[in-house]
Write a protein that binds this DNA or RNA. Structure first.
Lengths: 151, 151
DNA sequence: CATATCCCTACTAAATAGATAGAGATAATG
DNA sequence: CATTATCTCTATCTATTTAGTAGGGATATG
């Protein structure tokens, strides 16, 4: 299960990305809409800003806007930001590779091999799906992704 | 990342399943081979026994043997036993479905939709790969699974 | 009866999750 | 220029989970 923190981050980013271009959204408004504890959300938005994903404006007409386009931000990137490596085993992570302490041989590890097969597919979807995709897909729920990739 | 507990469970089961038919393996021997804390491993093996996966013999010539054939035990089943639901969101779990507390509409939830696509693939691999598969695959590392499924 | 095994329960230390709290910085507005 | 609504930053707190440790008890063999 992903953490509440990560889920809140997704909800917030989708809300911000769905705004009209240049229109800022406040943390108060996002918290109200989605029932997220306000101070907790502020921390999350701050993390997203520090990661270079959001931009903020302070003061009375302040709020948050996207810094990068929604189509350049993948689910995988956001998830990693809040949860660390996505891989089920440290030896399967590309960004945060570590050998298992008790590892005898990676190439002959059955656990690594079978989890690797499963994780490859999982990662590939999350790293290739962007917030932009998610926003477009919500308008056509039965949309088949394969068709778009081909088009 | 999966827990050490689950990883130890996999190592133990693969070791037991690799034994000659009816040949018991002791917790002491498994712990020694894989550098697993012995008392911790005992708890794990007990869980596997209670789940009806392993059988045990007590006394001086005791140890553990498989109760069910290795080909009937999937990675998904073992993982769920030690980690609970595999799904990234409670609303995506089949065995332990729960609605998100802040859910407005599942069918229009972008997070659910995109994670659902990724998770479906992950789950399908883990639920269709058995300990038996893993043991056979270790002898032919470049084995393509698709071929076997077709045969 | 000594010993090697499995069986069972309780406990603990460290890390993580999920916030809560409070004060500061900044910008608009009357 | 004071008020107010924002974002910014750091510290703290509580509950849960993880990863064991500990200490027996039950049972089978020689």
């Amino acid at each position: 299960m992903i953490s509440n923190k990560a889920k809140y981050a997704f909800r917030a980013m989708l809300a911000i990305a769905a705004q009209e271009e240049g229109d800022a959204l406040t943390s108060t408004e996002i918290a109200r809409r989605h029932g997220i504890p306000h101070k907790f959300l502020e921390q999350i938005l701050l993390d997203l800003k520090k990661a270079g994903i959001l931009e903020s404006r302070r003061g009375k007409t302040g709020g948050y806007v996207m810094l990068r386009p929604a189509d350049t931000i993948s689910f995988g990137e956001v998830l990693r930001l809040f949860e660390g490596p996505l891989a089920p085993l440290p030896c399967l992570s590309r960004n945060a590779y570590r050998r298992c302490e008790d590892c005898v041989s990676e190439s002959s590890c059955e656990i690594r091999r079978e989890f690797g097969r499963a994780y490859d597919l999982y990662r590939q979807v999350l790293d290739s799906t962007t917030l932009g995709d998610a926003l477009r897909n919500r308008d056509n729920p039965d949309f088949r992704r394969e068709e778009r990739a081909a088009g």
